[in-house]
């Protein structure tokens, strides 16, 4: 387990007991998880470069003394991202359910970048316990899109609804309507290969979703 206060130079704050606090914290995680956090924030910077640099992140925890991925030091709970251009994406403020489409799309962009480097990612559509943060962990690597996973299915359904107006029910069941919308999104994003079996194809699709999300563009 290693101790850190910044990920690749970007500070990570804790707001759960005092919103807006910018005191540097000692977080812990495994070295392998930290290495993935660095790849993740570099993906995030590169895909959101139109917003400027990332000023800070806010987290509810990495290593936490409890069972599961947090206890193993291989999980992150992401509360908030702030860019130098003034933009924010705030799972803490339930942006997945915002009345503003651009905030929902930006949330899905951040969610997509988490899915490039972690598995599982649990978001506001997954269940009520995750409606105020995005959880990202090492539980089920490698990163591919699994039709049998509720986590992946609700993400795909919410993505198709918010970028293509698919009108799917976000229920976690991968049925024919979800399949059809997914195929359309994959085609419009120009993805070759199978995101269900190829990490390369799934990551390419997630990058495409993130670019559209940060630019607030339909797919």
């Amino acid at each position: 387990m290693i101790t850190f206060s910044r990920i690749d130079g970007t500070p990570v704050y804790y707001w759960r007991s005092n919103r807006g606090n910018t005191t540097l914290r000692n977080w812990q995680c495994t070295q392998a998880f930290y290495d993935s956090l660095v790849l993740w924030i570099r993906d995030l910077r590169s895909l959101s470069s139109g917003y400027g640099s990332i000023t800070y992140l806010v987290s509810a925890g990495f290593y936490v003394n409890k069972p599961g991925q947090h206890g193993a030091g291989t999980a992150m709970d992401l509360d908030h991202v702030r860019w130098s251009g003034g933009q924010v994406s705030s799972p803490l403020d339930r942006h997945h359910a915002s009345g503003t489409q651009s905030l929902r799309r930006r949330y899905l962009a951040v969610d997509a970048v988490c899915r490039r480097r972690f598995r599982y990612a649990l978001d506001g559509w997954y269940n009520a316990d995750h409606e105020d943060h995005i959880h990202a962990d090492f539980a089920g690597l490698p990163t591919v899109c699994q039709k049998g996973s509720r986590s992946d299915t609700v993400f795909v359904q919410a993505m198709c609804n918010n970028f293509m107006g698919s009108g799917l029910s976000v229920d976690g069941d991968w049925g024919p309507l979800t399949q059809s919308a997914f195929t359309t999104a994959k085609s419009r994003l120009g993805i070759s290969g199978d995101p269900h079996t190829s990490t390369t194809a799934w990551r390419a699709m997630l990058s495409g979703i993130a670019r559209h999300g940060f630019a607030n563009q339909a797919i």
Partner: peptide, 9 residues
Amino acid sequence: TGNALDDTA
């Protein structure tokens, strides 16, 4: 006994 959530102390 435990660990702090805000800085793992």
